[in-house]
Write a protein that binds this DNA or RNA. Structure first.
Lengths: 363, 363
DNA sequence: ACGGGGCGTGAAAACCTTTTCAAGAAGATC
DNA sequence: GATCTTCTTGAAAAGGTTTTCACGCCCCGT
């Protein structure tokens, strides 16, 4: 019994004298570095060195190890690797939702870039609820090398993600001046609706309605503010703001309100594209023509807008690029290529005119 | 030096005599179970027992440990946990793409169910390329407790995912009879278009076109087959099949072909909803009315279809439920509640008639 | 009063990899 | 030929957790 103690040295798994080990290695998960070492006739240290190219190894042994690893189909156990404090190869993505084309495009950008750079994605949604945020962040803890966070409602300091991992915020308020050391990537919410509204004014529209996005969403507030600024100086009845949301139903409901207004607006700036589609649907339903009676402009530039009927004028956000920039920046920080940035990087948006809006001045 | 050997016992981190450890624990990542044990004045084994409720512990110590853990904000290191071969808490999701409403709804179902059951998602896309499949599967290895795989092109045996982890296939061909021990969840591709086509026939349409999905996609093949079976016995010119795809552009292009046909079809069964929207867009563009001149029916039941114009008739697939069933089944297997099932579970689809199709017999 | 049976608890092994340290071999220089 | 240097290699520690094993204690029964 006391003699056992000193035998704590490496011995081949097969020839171990005492049988009361929990499970034979082969019964457990796949092949380990031991199996490779055994087969190649070298130590596990050498195997590690070969596989990670971390030190020069004799050519013959190198080949031996490589073929042994290939034969056995050896894949290093990621848990053991990250236990050493090395990279996990994961990027955590915290989003409010995943449904809808905006998020699917965002995910697309995040995913392709992550794949290109050799990372994979861990995803968790919060539904804008603080406890789900924190549960998600806790689940990510120690499993990822960095975090991409999009939270249109809760500001970073309220989220209290006290992660040691580098974090990039996307379209998240509360770090407007790069204060608090946060870094975020945003797009021009305010300027987007401002430009869209100004275009409508220049196109001869007088009474323009805005269907705003969900309450307390910072980006919805900014879009409303852009609309208000463009309409500054116009009488209140010429720039009504209607409660809405980011989904078609809400746009549909808002359209009923707008169709009944006196004077009736000849144009609508909607919170986003889905909302705009709902608005169009509701206006048609109320017997109005789009863009004959009412012009409608959306926001986001979702792919469907190109094929909806009428095709949708919109403020186009390069969503995929947004995701790509987020991941690239994050990976740069993770790999130490650059110091953690602070501040806000703004991605410009552009007004895309299609068939759902028309000019009244040059018919 | 030789005296050191026998001191391999637990000692408080702070009082270790030799200073040549790589890093002090406190400098590394957050707090460990040792810190909690130290603060609570118990052994690490007891801390583990309290936190996992794995064995009865004296009430007073339990409280002590719990407050200590809470005070320090202790989060167990997941790498160390999964190193023991325990659960990782992750579910791997391998998809061909993530863009489009079908996938975003699927993700939604997967994500909410996973969250409900205490799992998080690892996501990787393959773009239908074998090497990306295998890279994704390798990246998942050892990081997840199970896999959800959707591969409309490559069959499970061709994918060669030799994962020890339980796997649920979604809408994946090649395990039609539950052969090879695969388990998959599918929906009625063939029956869906069959029913849609039969409806159109009963509604008085004679010449009906099918715009098919991408080549080599098993589900596209099945949908075409459903169309063909419903049209069995009709002369070939009354049931043309046009090359298409799953995106709007392809539907748009197919519409040009259909608009020029002689005799011109009065109805179109499209590969999916996006395709149908493209078809509608293309038909309108060609000066035809939908559903006045041509009826169009899609497939999938994406949310946008309710608000497109005209609103879209479709074969509705309960996509969220699909995701939910996949995760629930998988977690049941992971947790040992049931043996790994084999075979196919079919989720029924339903024909939803909206404004893009009309009956010719009862006007 | 003494022996046996639970029950609670701590020590230490096990999980798998990377990395450091030391040692051995080979080569080079005087 | 001997010593020193360089290069390659293996042994072992470290990383944080769970789990097993064994020990000591208390309580109960005879």
């Amino acid at each position: 019994m006391s003699a056992r103690k000193k035998t704590r040295t490496s011995r081949p798994t097969a020839t171990r004298p005492d049988g009361r080990r929990r499970k034979r290695a082969s019964e457990r998960r796949g092949v380990t570095i031991r199996d490779v070492a055994l087969r190649a006739g070298v130590s596990i240290a050498t195997v590690s060195r070969v596989l990670n190219r971390t030190a020069p190894v004799d050519e013959r042994k190198r080949v031996l190890v490589e073929t042994a690893a290939a034969d056995l189909g050896y894949i290093p156990n990621p848990a053991a690797q990250s236990l050493l404090g090395r990279r996990t190869g994961g990027i955590g993505v915290l989003l409010p939702y995943v449904s809808g084309e905006f998020y699917s495009e965002l995910l697309n950008g995040l995913d392709s870039t992550a794949k290109e750079l050799g990372y994979f994605l861990l995803i968790s949604t919060s539904h804008d609820r603080l406890e789900e945020w924190q549960a998600g962040a806790r689940a990510m803890f120690g499993r990822v090398d960095g975090l991409v966070v999009m939270s249109p409602i809760l500001t970073p300091d309220r989220l209290e993600i006290r992660s040691d991992e580098p974090t990039v915020y996307v379209n998240t308020p509360g770090a407007p001046d790069g204060a608090n050391g946060f870094f975020s990537i945003g797009f021009s919410n305010l300027e987007g609706t401002f430009e869209a509204t100004r275009y409508l004014l220049e196109a001869g529209h007088r009474t323009i309605a805005h269907v705003r996005g969900p309450v307390a969403h910072a980006d919805a507030d900014l879009r409303e503010e852009g609309f208000r600024r463009a309409m500054a100086g116009h009488p209140a009845e010429e720039c009504p703001v209607v409660e809405g949301g980011y989904h078609q139903e809400e746009g549909f409901a808002a359209a009923r309100v707008i169709a009944a207004m006196q004077p009736r607006p000849t144009a609508v700036v909607a919170a986003n594209d889905y909302c705009a589609m709902g608005v169009i649907s509701g206006l048609l339903d109320a017997g109005l023509d789009v863009p004959g009676d009412v012009s409608v402009i959306g926001f986001d530039g979702v792919p469907s807008g190109r094929y909806s009927h009428p095709t949708l004028s919109t403020v186009e956000v390069p969503v995929r690029r947004l995701g790509e920039r987020a991941v690239r920046t994050l990976v740069d920080v993770i790999q130490g290529h650059r110091a953690p940035p602070t501040g806000v990087e703004m991605i410009p948006v552009s007004l895309v005119l299609r068939a759902s809006s028309r000019s009244l001045v040059e018919p």
